[in-house]
Write a protein that binds this DNA or RNA. Structure first.
Lengths: 152, 152
DNA sequence: TGACTCATGTCAATATTCTGACATAGATTA
DNA sequence: TAATCTATGTCAGAATATTGACATGAGTCA
């Protein structure tokens, strides 16, 4: 309709569609993770640690797209429940490198399978070429948005 | 690296990239909306009402990707502050059609301009063809994820 | 008409995340 | 060395969103 000068047409807005897709993905992940007693952030943290052992609280926070305060709360729970371990004192600086315990690894294995099924489903209707171009497009969007200068 | 049988390689995962892009967009929107004293959900609600006057609480919730309970709290605040109006009694059923007040429209105008600048920036590095294919890809992902059957 | 199902609006309690703040450790610079 | 800047871990309070629950109204079906 009359998008010019008016509002942002949500029907054709790529930003809105991006949010819609992200929301659908999150909901699908929550659905398969819930039976495992795991939240998305919880899973993200474990998956990050599996791929990059020794990540710090702040690095995990950035990787899971939450604040370091939120990640800190999560890590304390995960540590208490025996999914991860952190040294009592920092080897260097204030950074506490975190690692998965065997229990954490076991827990992650089930979650990864569940999440993989979601991703496979999401990619189901796309050709390899489409996936490839979607990848490039998303990277482009991220790059443009990261060029600080908020006010323009 | 060794993604087979192991974890989900976050470096090459389209799902992770989707979350990354969505997070970057949200952060950029928060940055430009904050000076206006508005949150993203707050803005989304107003924008939805501008395009589809008379939307109900539940419909607004779905459009803004929050629960109807969360939207209800927001609407009560917006109504109290004079940005929207709702009839005291439902014209039909329990549905209360919500509408923007002149004040709500004024407030939205500034926000829309700010958000538009973010979307323009996001699209800056993409050709028209890329935007078009990104749109199709995102729609495909949403469609695949919406095909319920969570567990497979 | 009556029973059933579904969607809605709303209240309450809980959970999650964020903002603000502080002390500390390393790097940078003079 | 000393001052400054940046990044980190963490505590506390506030904002935000969610789950759970209930009553109500509309639609369906017998």
């Amino acid at each position: 309709m009359s998008q010019d000068g008016g509002g942002i047409d949500l029907e054709t807005s790529l930003g809105y569609l991006l949010k819609e897709a992200s929301s659908a993905l999150r909901q699908a992940m929550e659905a398969v993770l819930r039976p495992l007693g795991m939240t998305v952030t919880h899973y993200s943290c474990l998956e990050l640690l599996a791929q990059r052992p020794g990540l710090s609280n702040s690095e995990l926070a950035r990787g899971a797209f939450v604040t370091r305060q939120s990640m800190n709360v999560l890590l304390q729970t995960l540590e208490r429940d025996g999914y991860v371990t952190r040294p009592a004192t920092a080897p260097v600086g204030k950074v506490l490198p975190t690692r998965l315990t065997p229990r954490g690894r076991r827990s992650l294995a089930k979650a990864t399978a569940a999440v993989r099924s979601v991703e496979v489903r999401m990619l189901g209707g796309m050709t390899q070429a489409e996936q490839s171009s979607a990848f490039t497009s998303l990277q482009s969007m991220i790059h443009s948005l990261r060029d600080d200068a908020a006010g323009g």
